[in-house]
Nucleic acid binder design. Structure first.
Length: 202
DNA sequence: TAGGTGATCTTG
DNA sequence: AAGATCACCTAT
């Protein structure tokens, strides 16, 4: 397997976002923001399936200034502010016009740990620094200014494959979407079994 | 378990 | 146009 290969457009154009959410586990997010380079491996994701998913911002084809990003071609970053404080990082998938996205929920740090600890305003390294969608965004320096950026072309934020082989994947329900009725029961949250850098077990 | 915080959208 | 909502986190 080729290593340190940047993920290409075709990966993100996967029409099955539930499949893509699992394939992104083990891939590495690279950011070069404010002059600091960081790398972190994706350990936990959630799938959001566009217009047919009650938990998705684009449910029933909802199109607003905010959700517009989700309709872009697969491979773009969808970043929005939640609860007034938290920047959440999603990867848009499928073709242009299909509003599917994968929410990145947790990462395991690889490079730039000093920088990430400083951004998180903590001294001690460990899973709690990166386990949670708002936490990893803060650690990697990701904020709303990167909303709509193309991960396939950007020099500031992109994904690579370092050849990590992911073993068992735990499949369970998504977090914080109780309003989504029966769709809240779908097992569309995924994490690498046995990995410590996960926001919530089972 | 409760409260902070602010952009977005409005009988969710 | 004010108020409800919200894919969360931190501290008691």
């Amino acid at each position: 397997m080729l290593q340190n290969k940047r993920l290409e457009r075709s990966i993100f154009q996967n029409p099955d976002v539930v499949d893509l959410a699992q394939r992104l586990l083990g891939k590495v997010i690279c950011t070069k923001i404010d002059g600091f380079y960081c790398e972190a491996m994706i350990t936990e994701t959630e799938a959001y399936a566009g217009e047919n998913d009650k938990a998705c911002h684009a449910y029933l084809g909802k199109f607003t200034k905010r959700t517009a990003t989700m309709y872009k071609e697969g491979g773009h970053a969808y970043i929005y502010l939640c609860y007034g404080i938290h920047h959440l990082f999603n990867i848009v998938s499928n073709v242009k016009g299909k509003a599917d996205a994968v929410l990145i929920r947790s990462v395991e740090p690889l490079l730039g740990i000093e920088t990430m600890l400083r951004r998180r305003k903590v001294i001690k390294n460990g899973p709690k620094v990166y386990a949670g969608p708002a936490k990893l965004s803060q650690a990697l320096g990701i904020d709303k200014s990167l909303n709509g950026v193309d991960l396939v072309n950007s020099e500031n934020i992109y994904l690579i494959d370092k050849g990590k082989v992911v073993g068992d994947i735990v499949k369970t329900t998504r977090i914080g979407i109780d309003y989504a009725g029966e769709d809240a029961l779908l097992a569309w949250r995924f994490y690498i079994s046995g990995n410590k850098y996960v926001s919530k077990y089972i």
